[in-house]
Design a protein around this nucleic acid. Structure first.
Lengths: 225, 225
DNA sequence: GCTTGATTGGCCCTTTGGGGCAATAGACGA
DNA sequence: TCGTCTATTGCCCCAAAGGGCCAATCAAGC
């Protein structure tokens, strides 16, 4: 591999493959059973997903804290419930603040209480071992779809937040009122300023938010609150 | 108390109490264990909720099919999983099309598979018997809040649907385009009609939808799709 | 045949929105 | 202290929206 790196452009090829896989989705599997890790990883890679495996929640958290937020592209966690030290449910709690990757929990020996806890804490599904490959892939597909959806939402919100941030205090004030349906003259009276001033601010708002109709302005403002 | 009831306006008093309870919320309990029904009913009424009990899903469905949709006010179902004939999960499936009352399932002997199924099918929570009164009341409170929310949404949508229905085909067309940010002249050109006609339709739309600003129009249209 | 509702169009006027040009004033970092 | 940024305003002009008044066409239903 190292040799390859030096001779031909293996980086490009392998990177392209990884990129393709990541675009389709990345599955992070956490289980203290090495055989299961191997089997699941094989299954996911066969299906064209990128797959990372960890033999404990601790190992995963370690890597997470070092690398920071993960790669772009949809990503989900598939995690065993029963594990030493940090179990699946505990990991779920810890990740609540860190990541927004959808979580799938799996267990062979858990009871209803664990399943209920998992769902309450926001797990997308709770799979019972042994599970059919089809069931598993189905759950993963849905989880990755959710992940993609969330990322899309987040990207969009960040984008809009940046634009909203470019507004001055006064412009924000005018933007709010415009999005509430107030007319320029109303706003001018309410703020005790001239009509012309309101128009100028309003123009700035439209410019900075990159919209050119009132309808779009309303959509942007509504989307952010 | 009874004396009081008989001497002065007893009907009014009891009605008022029932009304208060229904406003606070109504809990429908379904369990094949009569003792549990009694105990839960007592608990809920003590907390100020109205409570109905059924000793089987069949009995509940029977009453439901006779009376049609239930009373106004928030309402939730609390249903045992293990029951003869129709069990909790099966009832859940059957109610999927019928009602939108949030469902709480409870069980003492179920495993993770049942809990997972319940959540997948949209149950709000899955409680493990025996449960603390606090846990139960907490779940019921949340379920009733969800119910109130849903009813509010539905009422609003029905209201808007009625108004939208009052629009003629042409008016709907104009309403859509206006809500997309198209200008009157654009619309006129697109539909091959005169500007004046677009204005007239637009005016009718605002009138019939009971809005008086473009912003409100956008909100109404967006809310309906 | 007549009424009614939907759709359409023209003419004309007012209000509101959008924007160019020029200018003043306070705040703030270089 | 100077230049920049932000907020402010006035004057003027044009485009778009809102709407009154009048009127024609057409299909459906009594």
């Amino acid at each position: 591999m190292i040799r390859d790196l030096c001779i031909r452009q293996p980086i490009t090829v392998s990177d392209r493959r990884l990129a393709e896989r990541c675009a389709r989705g990345r599955v992070v599997v956490i289980d203290d059973d090495a055989e299961i890790l191997l089997a699941l990883c094989a299954l996911f890679e066969l299906e064209g997903y990128a797959c990372e495996t960890y033999d404990s929640a601790v190992a995963f958290l370690q890597v997470l804290s070092e690398n920071g937020p993960c790669f772009p592209g949809p990503c989900c966690l598939l995690c065993d419930v029963r594990m030493p030290q940090i179990d699946g449910l505990e990991l779920q709690r810890r990740l609540k603040e860190l990541g927004d990757a959808p979580m799938l929990l799996m267990s062979g020996s858990s009871g209803a209480p664990e399943a209920a806890s998992a769902f309450r804490a926001g797990a997308l599904d709770f799979l019972i071992k042994p599970m059919k490959a089809e069931t598993l892939l189905d759950a993963v597909t849905k989880a990755l779809a959710v992940s993609a959806q969330r990322q899309h939402q987040r990207t969009r919100r960040d984008e809009l937040a940046t634009r909203l941030n470019a507004l001055t205090e006064r412009e924000r004030e005018i933007a709010q009122r415009v999005a509430l349906g107030q007319r320029n003259l109303e706003i001018a009276d309410a703020l005790g300023i001239a009509l012309r001033t309101v128009k100028r601010h309003r123009h700035q708002v439209m410019e900075k938010l990159e919209v050119d109709t009132l309808v779009d302005l309303v959509h942007v403002i509504d989307e952010m609150k």
